[in-house]
């Protein structure tokens, strides 16, 4: 069965007008912000496919900015996100790229930065408000954003994965999904760990102190 809950039918509560072009866009922006770990100073956003064709009418641009400001899809401030971002000195650029072919019609690439760091996230809105993050800093991943997740950039060295896994076990948490992605052997790698339980700040802190770990982000 595709739909399991009555709330898949009567719900979700969201800002209109479209579950894929608005609610899904907020969720992608929000996950990008959480992966970055703070409010960025600059955001460069590239829209592809149907997002690029119809983003103005659906408020897709406004919705992504709302996500970057950490709003939920039902936040009443959503329509004012552009003005609110300006007030907070968040510099934004938008490009609607209608040339590049993407696998899914509703795809967006978001590059976030401040003086210290930057991150590049690619997300797709797959329908009904559901999303998937398919790429982070060039690493191919698959992250739904609907489960709590730990997101760890690390040196591709033996023991790195085992040390993180045993820390998670120490907190008596269950890993429901895990993937490790790397571009070149022995260089940098990205670990994405989804858990059944919420991930506390203390666990993230301890993971960050492990050898070989470069960056930790928590998605709740």
């Amino acid at each position: 069965m595709k739909y399991r809950s009555v709330f898949d039918i009567i719900g979700p509560v969201m800002i209109g007008p479209s579950s894929s072009h608005t609610a899904g866009a907020v969720r992608i922006g929000r996950v990008a912000r959480h992966l970055f770990g703070a409010q960025p100073m600059e955001a460069a956003i590239t829209l592809y496919g149907s997002f690029a064709e119809t983003y103005q009418g659906h408020g897709t641009d406004v919705a992504i900015i709302a996500g970057l400001l950490d709003f939920e899809p039902n936040d009443p401030r959503l329509p004012d996100a552009l003005e609110l971002a300006q007030k907070e000195d968040l510099k934004i650029s938008f490009i609607a790229d209608k040339e590049t072919e993407t696998e899914h019609p509703n795809t967006v690439r978001i590059r976030l930065s401040d003086q210290q760091s930057d991150i590049e996230v690619v997300g797709v809105s797959i329908g009904g408000g559901k999303i998937e993050i398919i790429e982070v800093d060039g690493f191919n991943i698959s992250l739904s954003g609907s489960n709590p997740a730990l997101f760890i950039l690390h040196q591709d060295k033996y023991g790195a994965v085992a040390e993180v896994a045993s820390l998670i076990a120490k907190y008596e948490m269950n890993i429901s999904y895990m993937e490790v992605s790397r571009k070149v052997k022995g260089s940098l790698a990205l670990m994405v760990i989804q858990t059944d339980e919420e991930i506390g700040g203390k666990l993230a802190e301890e993971v960050g102190l492990l050898p070989n770990i470069l960056h930790v982000a928590v998605l709740s």
């Binding site: 009567i10 719900g11 509560v13 969201m14 800002i15 007008p17 579950s19 408020g59 039902n74 959503l78």
Partner: peptide, 8 residues
């Protein structure tokens, strides 16, 4: 008008 609704 980008108001809050419940999808039904």
């Amino acid at each position: 008008a980008m108001g809050v609704i419940c999808a039904t």
